[in-house]
């Protein structure tokens, strides 16, 4: 069955406390090459049947209304997995 992948990231202008805390921890690894971390979400939706343009449109609405909150997050990609 095909899988549709939806990726959501916190808005760039907003503080990402989880990413900031992780970035601070990563300072202990390597030589400081990693300067920042941002943590987002990846949803894998298993589809029964064919992924039609209509279904992708429907998933786009779900991504906007449920999987993300447009006050704090952006949907950055919706795609069918290889």
């Amino acid at each position: 069955m095909p899988t549709v992948i939806v990726e959501v990231m916190p808005k760039e202008v907003l503080l990402d406390p989880a990413g900031k805390a992780t970035a601070r921890a990563l300072q202990r690894f390597g030589d400081g090459e990693i300067t920042d971390v941002r943590i987002g979400k990846r949803f894998e939706l298993t589809i029964d049947g064919e992924v039609t343009p209509k279904l992708l449109e429907h998933i786009g609405e779900i991504a906007k209304d449920v999987l993300s909150n447009d006050v704090i997050e952006d949907v950055i990609s919706i795609r069918v997995a290889d």
Binding site: P10, L14, L15, P17, A18, K20, A21, N69, V71, I72
Partner: peptide
């Protein structure tokens, strides 16, 4: 919106 406390 409400997000994680700034001090984590």
């Amino acid at each position: 919106g409400l997000i994680r406390n700034d001090h984590g």
